[in-house]
Design a protein around this nucleic acid. Structure first.
Length: 510
RNA sequence: GCGGGAGUAGCUCAGUGGUAGAGCGCUACCUUGCCAAGGUAGAUGUCGCGAGUUCGAAUCUCGUCUCCCGCUCCA
């Protein structure tokens, strides 16, 4: 039986050392989690599998790793400094909270005129401009909302509004020893911008031709208003992102291809069931997006929710980060909305040799959450199996490539020195390659050792017994130097020669 | 940020003013010829944190933090 609730997964993760609450002994820190000994292996394996699929097994992707601390101009021109913050206002009577722009959109024109009059300005057509005007002086804005009798849809009456407050979803941090208003940087809210600002560097250093992509995994930070639901919404998260650059006009077909490719990856590599995956077509689009499609997974408790978002970011980002934008062949939407860039020293364009012209590529962005991926993999793999003898076996049916521990070596009897020594020797042999986690355990009876490994998701247990050391029953030595390999999912066993073990295991965990 | 619920051993939870408990798990030894076997011994808690009331607080009050549910938010 699969996990029935997220709580079940949460306590399992803590008990077995996958995931712990962040800063726990000091009462925790909201929206942070730490990965334990098994968790870090699983997470690394997931990232490695992603990198392998998206970088190594393709011809058209380069990897990159950019800094988390980000120059504020990067996030100004990307639109985040402005668009990544929400002005919020509360109605003290109804206890409802609204985004200011959403609230204003629902008002009668007369109410908006009254607000403008109170501020002493003409009413702007553009809601963003209007909101900006209100945020210039929040106490004056509060007075304006009250004077204009802004209505709360909840009860249909003028609300008792608080001052509007700007809720910035980006973390700022001080850079350098002098704490003044200008010496700060942002912690990046997405890894994407690092790839955009390095577009020229990658093109120049690799001689890439369109279409090609840049891939990156790494931490991002979002000051979520309400971090919730375990790993699902956290303030420090890790992303696996690709910015795939194409000729304008090719973007729509490439977008569809990435969606298909990544659904397949979640199903075939991470092991998520196809029927637990859905697509969600965004109706309300981000400022940079022409079309965004989410890949959703059916999490316990949460239901279908986002695992990966695949956006067509058009030429927005490259255009935004370029100087002299008026000289570039930008798309109409970008041209109309892009902020004049007074700080960039580069034009992020691509010279199209065959047609002898500069173009600004369109970008398709598959952006997945590593932590959400780990959570989905755990939820999918978690199984409470009812055995024939009436007992329950918890087994984590992770694909071998994701399993934290690949193989456990166990002595059938720990009070038989030759068996113990042989088992430890085999453990050394298997770990010598250095590219997989192996364990030796003799602290319980063999059945319990198997069950422990089942919970950890270990696909193979190797048991050293009397046959291994040439002391089989009735003097049988025919199975000397062979061991039992016990399979996690089926609990079946087979006999394998020690000399063949390394190859046997490696060929089954790739 | 608002409303509701919760926080006691690693996990699940009992304990309503009077010496902190159970099950599972964990450790050591014995036993054990393959699926959470048995025996013996053992460790583990600022009862989330901080104040207050009280002779005495896990228990009552207030504050605070964290988690869960609902609102809100989710580029």
């Amino acid at each position: 039986m699969a996990a029935q609730s997220l709580d079940q997964i949460v306590s399992f993760c803590k008990r077995r050392g996958f995931i712990f609450p962040g800063s726990e002994i000091y009462g925790g820190l909201q929206g942070t989690y730490d990965y334990g000994p098994l968790g870090v292996e699983l997470k690394n394996n997931l990232k490695r599998a992603w990198w392998r699929h998206n970088v190594y097994e393709r011809d058209d992707i380069e990897g990159i790793e950019t800094s988390l601390l980000t120059n504020r101009y990067v996030l100004r021109y990307s639109g985040h400094e402005k668009g990544f913050s929400d002005p919020l206002v509360d109605n003290k009577t109804t206890k409802k909270r609204y985004r200011l722009d959403h609230l204003l959109k629902d008002q009668e024109p007369g109410v908006l005129d009254a607000i403008a009059a109170h501020l002493g300005i003409e009413r702007p057509d553009d809601m963003d401009v209007f909101v900006d005007a209100l945020l210039q002086d929040t106490s004056k804005a509060q007075a304006a909302l009250l004077a204009a009798k802004v209505v709360d849809a909840q009860d249909g009456k003028p609300g008792d509004w608080t001052e509007p407050r700007q809720f910035n979803l980006m973390f700022k941090t001080q850079v350098g020893p002098v704490a003044d208003d200008e010496s700060f940087a942002y912690l990046r809210p997405e890894t994407a911008q690092g790839m955009f600002v390095n577009f020229k560097n990658v093109v120049d250093s690799t001689n890439r031709k369109l279409p090609f992509g840049i891939a990156q995994t790494g931490k991002s930070f979002r000051n979520e208003i309400t971090p919730r639901n375990f790993l699902f919404r956290v303030r420090e998260l890790e992303q696996m992102e690709i910015e795939y650059f194409v000729r304008p006009g090719d973007d729509e077909a490439v977008h569809d291809a990435w969606i298909e490719d990544h659904i397949e990856w979640w199903v075939n590599v991470v092991g998520l069931k196809r029927e637990k995956i859905q697509l969600f077509e965004h109706v309300k689009l981000a400022h940079y997006s022409k079309r965004t499609v989410d890949i959703l997974y059916n999490f316990p408790t949460l239901g279908f929710d986002e695992l990966e978002g695949i956006a067509n970011r058009t030429d927005w980002d490259l255009g935004s980060h370029s100087r002299s934008q008026d000289t570039l062949p930008l798309s109409e939407n970008t041209k109309a909305r892009v902020m004049l860039n007074e700080h960039s020293v580069e034009k992020l364009t691509y010279f199209d040799q065959p047609n002898n012209q500069h173009i600004v590529p369109f970008v398709i962005e598959p952006a997945a959450g590593v932590d959400r991926g780990v959570l989905a993999a755990l939820c999918e793999a978690y199984d409470e199996e009812l055995l024939e003898n009436g007992e329950t076996r918890i087994v984590l049916r992770l694909p071998a490539v994701l399993a934290p521990i690949k193989v456990a070596v166990l002595p059938l009897k720990k009070n038989e020195p030759t068996i113990v020594e042989t088992a430890k020797k085999i453990k050394k042999l298997l770990q010598s390659g250095g590219d997989m986690r192996t364990v030796y355990d003799d602290t319980a009876a063999i059945g319990k050792l198997y069950r422990r490994q089942d919970e950890a998701g270990t696909p193979f247990c190797i048991t050293v017994d009397f046959d291994t050391i040439g002391r089989g029953r009735d003097g049988d030595t025919s199975m000397e130097n062979t061991v039992t390999v016990r399979h996690r999912d089926s609990m079946l066993q087979e006999r394998v020669a020690i000399d063949d073990l390394l190859h046997y295991i490696k060929s089954r965990i790739a």
